[in-house]
Amino acid sequence: MKVDKHSLLLYAVTDRSWLGDNSLAAQVEDAIKAGVTFVQLREKELPYADFVAEAKKVKEITAHYRIPLVINDNIEVAQEIDADGVHVGQSDLDVSAARALLGEDKIIGVSAQTLEEAVWAEKHGADYLGVGTVFPTSTKLDATGVSFAVLQDICSKVAIPVVAIGGINAENILGLQGTGIDGVAVVSAIFAQPDISAAARKLAALVQKAVKR
């Protein structure tokens, strides 16, 4: 298995909305030092050259701490900077292209909202699943909710690791106990916080109780 499920424990998805005067790489470093175990670089608006430049800086950090780095949706950026992989949506075409262009050794994460999508993604070669949204979220307005029961069902029926995503924070994270997830993915619960290190540290302690034993 290309992705060690323990590395998915506290999965941080970047968001430059709350950057302020900081650099994204510096925020990622703070988050990793405080316990983040996996990083997904997500950029929706950046031109290619800026995206690549940003990804290179973040990769320097993740490589230094030996934390996997995947790129959201952009196979080409992942290829260019030799990232550890990509995270793509529920599109068979994108999964096939990512596998062909990045090779067998890279991590391909796929988003899923239903058991059918989860089983499908596993069958098509996904290395892990991002399942959500598990709680209402402000960062993805159009995201569809996934119930506790569906999340539980997915975790019991796929062999690849599952990360819960969507609206997870220190207040509700323990609500995922008993679902069978391998980790939680967070965005604003880390990057929107005034003290990123403190926020990540708190989540890193709580997530131990939320994942399956």
Binding site: E76, A97, L101
Partner: peptide, 15 residues
């Protein structure tokens, strides 16, 4: 090889 940015373009058109 693909020319630059082809894969991203195809992904976008597909979406």
């Amino acid at each position: 090889p693909l020319k630059p940015h082809v894969i991203t373009f195809l992904q976008r058109l597909n979406k």
